[in-house]
Design a protein around this nucleic acid. Structure first.
Length: 448
RNA sequence: GUGGGUAUAGCGUAGUUGGUUAACGCGUCAGAUUGUGGUUCUGAAGACCGUCGGUUCGAGUCCGACUAUCCACCCCA
């Protein structure tokens, strides 16, 4: 055990890959249902991209980036979040010129050098979406609705939506002033970090966890009282649209977001079930970002959803994941000659489009049957001297134990019809299994 | 970066007030009369008890440091 994975990373081993496939499938099909197209961008970007977008005072940029310098003077950074790179790619590829709105989604790993804890990793995966070109509150609602749809598709009910508007740069400037005025008299009581915040980013003061700061912040002015007319109207309209969709939300003035590019709408979906890092999804509007990155001024918005946290929340809620795919057929050869035949037969079955395996270890029949059972093969075909001589074998249905004779020359078509029957019949039986098992298990014989 | 908890086979655990061959469950592998799984039974493999140092006649068991990991702060997905 000398080699270990880097701190804060994780191995997604075959035994749990179905969880990832489940959430990735739900996320991407929901996104596509909303008209979003997938985009893939590099894992690393020029460092300046993140400095300009995420913000040079943000924690992410100042202390969490993995930055490497390569040959020459360029420095690159492992992406700490998805939005900046995606917007860059949309600009660079002229996607913004293909007409609005442009809607993209992505499933990517991100990297932040933080101290790991429950729900926080140095490498984590996120599902994200970005929409460019719409200033309408319907776009905000659309994004939120998509996030809600993914969470709903995962079977989650106890993830609450927290909503806020942090206004445009104009109203935010006024609000910052108001905050400074409010907190200034309390300066000596505030914690050291909040004293700093008072200068740099007074909005951060609002979600300080220190009891004293919290107490002082209780009566602080609220951003929503300082919104300009346009921002206020936008926020009000968004809320009424959400009401129309019957999406529940809490207006939470404390949601501020740590990435500098947000404007107006910000939101988080928060789970109570996965420890302190409960934000499963966070996003909002960033009307200034595209021009900041050199594009035409274009309104835009999006969200990021943490896949680890999503899966953790699903596990906590006891949600179901898609089961792993299982082999349609396992061929159990006995002896070398049979193995030759098994290999060819297996190949033929695969070419016909089925998932098939045969013994690669040279084990006895019993261990092979055990293996077939363990991997949940739907059918097993034993191939020994008898079968080779007679040219006839049996296909065993592993669920029912039923064996069907089959000519080796006619193997595929027989297997085909058996399998269709099995898969089809299975679904049929499942629908009635409750009734059937209820009828069968009730009058069991009494013991002894 | 700041706190606190934990560190025994692949996984989950037990190891009595420090005493000789470190135990159990799951898993893995192999058998239970001749070519058939899921239950059961039997057996086997698999751990220098995180690392280094200290206390002691003797440490998995006590002390210290280090490392890893977990949880919380911070921040965020």
């Amino acid at each position: 055990m000398t080699l270990k994975r880097p701190k804060g990373t994780q191995d997604i081993v075959p035994g749990i890959i179905n969880k990832w496939k489940t959430v990735e499938g739900i996320a991407s099909s929901a996104a596509e249902q909303f008209g979003f197209r997938e985009i893939r961008t590099p894992v690393f970007e020029e460092t300046s991209l993140y400095v300009r977008s995420v913000g040079d005072t943000s924690d992410v940029v100042t202390k969490e980036m993995y930055t490497v310098s390569s040959k020459g003077s360029d420095t690159f950074t492992l992406r700490p979040e998805g939005t900046a790179g995606v917007i860059r790619a949309m600009l660079e590829n002229g996607i913004m010129n293909e007409g609005f709105p442009q809607k993209v989604y992505y499933i990517i790993p991100c990297y932040r050098h933080e101290k790991p804890q429950a729900g926080r990793y140095r490498e984590f995966r996120q599902f994200g979406v970005e929409m460019a070109g719409s200033a309408s509150p319907y776009a905000d609602a659309e994004i939120i609705l998509l996030a809600a749809s993914v969470l709903d598709g995962c079977g989650l009910e106890n993830v609450s939506l927290h909503l806020n508007s942090i206004g445009c740069p104009d109203c935010r400037a006024k609000y910052r002033e108001a905050l400074r005025e409010y907190f200034e008299p309390h300066r000596s009581e505030l914690c050291p970090t909040c004293n700093e915040r008072l200068e740099k980013n007074p909005m951060r003061l609002l979600d300080c966890k220190s009891p004293i700061c919290k107490e002082i912040a209780k009566d602080a002015p609220v951003i929503t009282d300082y919104l300009c007319d346009d921002c206020r109207a936008h926020f009000e309209k968004l809320k009424s649209i959400l009401d129309g969709y019957e999406i529940k939300y809490t207006v939470d003035p404390k949601i501020v977001r740590g990435l500098d590019y947000y404007t107006r709408t910000v939101f988080e979906f928060i789970s109570e079930d996965i420890g302190a890092q409960g934000t499963v999804c966070g996003g909002g509007r960033y009307d200034g970002l595209i021009s900041e990155l050199g594009g035409q001024p274009t309104p835009a918005l999006g969200f990021g959803m943490g896949l680890e946290r999503l899966i953790m929340t699903m596990e906590a809620a006891g949600c179901e994941f898609e089961p792993a795919k299982t082999p349609d057929l396992y061929i159990a050869p006995m002896g070398e000659k049979a193995q030759e035949k098994a290999a060819l037969l297996c190949d033929a079955v695969r070419r016909a489009g089925y998932a098939a395996e045969f013994d690669l270890i040279g084990r006895g029949l019993k261990p092979q049957m055990r293996y077939a059972d363990k991997v949940k093969a739907k059918f097993v075909c034993v191939l020994g001297d008898n079968e080779l001589e007679s040219g006839q074998a049996k296909l065993k249905n592993m669920r029912t134990g039923e064996e069907t004779p089959v000519e080796l020359t006619d193997f595929i078509s027989v297997f085909n019809s058996l399998l269709i029957n099995e898969v089809f019949g299975n679904g049929f039986e499942d629908e009635f299994s409750d009734i059937l098992s209820g009828m069968q298990s009730a009058p069991e014989e009494p013991k002894e």
